[in-house]
């Protein structure tokens, strides 16, 4: 956007008033915020002894999962839109003809490098069939880099693990089955 764009409104900084020039009122205002936090309930948790609570699992962006369709097959149609949207280039898909007569294309392999992922959730937004979703699983550990590249089986197992606690968002949001 250019500085001359009509949608840019230019405003001038007002000259400092007496209160601002005295400095003291703003100083007190700042200290009040500090004091309020001193007495308010603590938000810090002692992880891992204490588990943090996830506010809304529907919008939390944790470990990915690959959803299954009603017949238990991988829901992904290998359209590469997540890989296209991914700003970190962490999704690698190999597509092929599907094994089933009612489906055309499916991912022969699907892997996400969880170490490269920045958990922005763009893959989830891009997916036209709601196959890839971010769960509220937040502790993601591994002993090697290779272990942190999640393949299709692993991502499907994340779905199996989380499907009861976090049902597919698509059903309530009018998505595809």
């Amino acid at each position: 956007m250019k500085p001359t764009d009509p949608s840019v409104t230019w405003i001038e900084e007002k000259p400092l008033g007496l209160g601002e020039r005295l400095y003291l009122p703003l100083f007190v205002q700042g200290l009040t915020t500090t004091a309020r936090h001193l007495v308010s309930p603590k938000l810090t948790v002692s992880y891992p002894e204490q588990r943090p609570t996830v506010g809304n699992p529907l919008i939390y962006r944790g470990v990915h999962r690959l959803n299954r369709d009603t017949e238990g097959r991988v829901k992904c149609v290998a359209c590469f839109l997540c890989a296209t949207a991914c700003p970190a280039h962490c999704i690698d898909i190999v597509a092929t003809n599907s094994l089933w007569p009612d489906r055309e294309k499916y991912p022969e392999s699907f892997s996400i490098d969880e170490l490269r992922c920045i958990f922005c959730g763009m893959c989830e937004e891009a997916c036209p069939v709601d196959a890839i979703e971010l769960t509220s699983l937040l502790d993601l550990t591994g002993k090697s880099r290779e272990e942190m590249i999640f393949d299709k089986e692993k991502l499907l197992s994340v779905y199996d693990m989380t499907k009861d606690a976090e049902p597919m968002k698509s059903a309530s949001l009018g998505g595809t089955l």
Binding site: A78, C79, F80, T84, A95, T96, N97, K105
Partner: peptide, 9 residues
């Protein structure tokens, strides 16, 4: 070429 690559890549 079928399903080998998306054209925009």
């Amino acid at each position: 070429f079928l399903y080998q690559q998306r054209v925009w890549f």
